[in-house]
Design a binder for these strands. Structure first.
Lengths: 163, 163
DNA sequence: CATTAATAGTTAGCACACTAATTAATCGCG
DNA sequence: CGCGATTAATTAGTGTGCTAACTATTAATG
C-alpha cells in the first residue's frame, strides 16, 4: 500500500521539504552580499544568467526557462529595466510578446558576475563532487515533481507498475 | 587557486542555487493542494510540525528550529492564532518571551497531517532511497552554509589544508 | 469575414522572507 | 541599587512568488 516512513512521519528533521526550504534560503543567502554590490537580488541574477545565455528572450521564454510565473517576472523585469540592465519592448512580429534585451551595462555586468560561482563554491568549502551529487538529486526531484500526477489509486510504493 | 568550474561557470543549468530554488518551489507546490483543505500554507505547516514535536515553544525557539527570522514568524503566528490553531501569550518567568501553544483544534489537526508525507512521497513516485540521498546532500550544504566564512585568502579548492 | 478560442502580459491581493529600526524586559556589574 | 548592555518581539519597507481576474493581440472556425 504505502511506503514505510518510520515511526514518526511528521518528524521535522526528516522532512525533505524542510531541508529543501532551509537549504535554498541558506545558499541564496550566501549570494546576497556578493550580488548586493551589483544591485541584484538572486532571482534577478537568475534572469541575467538566462539573458547572458541568449538574447533577446520573451517573458514567456524566461518564464519556462526559470520556472517562474510571468506574474512574478513582470515587476522583476521592470526593476531590472529601472536599473538599466535590460530593455523591454513589444515584438513587431507579434505584439503579444514582450522582448527583453540586455543594455550595454547589462552585458558588461557579466564580467563581474563570473567571479560569483567561484566565490560561492569557495565559501561553502565543499568538495565539488558533493555539489554535483546534490545537483543530480535535485534534478531528479524537479523532474518527478513536474511529472503529471497519476490519478490512479492502484500503483503504489516507489515504482509505477502496470496492472 | 580556484576550483575549475568548467568552460561556462555561469551556465544556468549547472547552478546549484537555481536547482535548489526550483526544487524547493516545485516540492512545496505539491503540498499546496494537500494543505489547502486544512487552511495551512507550507511555512505554517512547518511551524505546526515543530509544535507537534514539543510545546510550548517561544518565538525564539521556533526561529532557531525553523531557521526563520522572528520578523517572519511574527505575522505568521498571528495568522495561526486567528485560525485557532495556536495561542500566544507572554511568559510569566520572562516577559520578553512569547509562548506559543497548540489549541485543541491545533492538536487535532495532527491526525489529518499524518497523511501528508505519504501523499507527497507517493506523488513524487521516487524511490525512498533517492529522497534519503537528497536529504543527506541537503543537510551537508546546510551545515556548510552555516559554517562561518573563513576570512583567509589562503586555503582553497575543496578542502581546507593547513599551511 | 465575423466570432470565438487561445495566448502573452499585467494587475491586484495574499503570504512569506529579509534587513533595519523600535520597544520592552532582563541581565550584569560596579 | 542602578544603569548600560543584551535579548526577544514587533513594525516598517522591499522584493519575491503564488492565484485569479483582466486586457490586448493573434489564431481558429464556421
Amino acid at each position: 500500500m504505502t511506503t514505510d516512513l518510520g515511526d514518526d512521519p511528521l518528524a521535522l528533521d526528516r522532512q525533505v521539504c524542510f531541508a529543501l526550504a532551509v537549504a535554498a534560503r541558506s545558499v541564496i543567502g550566501l549570494y546576497r552580499p556578493l550580488l548586493e554590490p551589483m544591485g541584484l537580488t538572486h532571482p534577478q541574477y537568475l534572469v541575467m544568467l538566462a539573458l547572458w545565455e541568449g538574447e533577446p528572450r520573451s517573458v514567456k521564454d524566461l518564464s519556462s526557462t526559470l520556472q517562474l510565473e510571468s506574474a512574478t517576472l513582470s515587476p522583476l523585469l521592470k526593476r531590472l529595466e529601472a536599473a538599466d540592465y535590460i530593455t523591454r519592448r513589444r515584438s513587431i512580429d507579434d505584439e503579444r510578446l514582450l522582448v527583453v534585451e540586455l543594455t550595454d551595462a547589462g552585458r558588461a555586468l557579466r564580467a563581474e558576475a563570473e567571479k560569483i560561482p567561484y566565490a560561492v563554491v569557495e565559501r561553502l568549502a565543499l568538495p565539488v563532487s558533493d555539489l554535483e551529487d546534490l545537483h543530480t538529486s535535485l534534478s531528479r526531484v524537479i523532474r518527478a515533481a513536474a511529472t503529471p500526477a497519476t490519478t490512479a489509486a492502484a500503483p503504489a510504493t516507489t515504482e509505477a507498475a502496470p496492472a
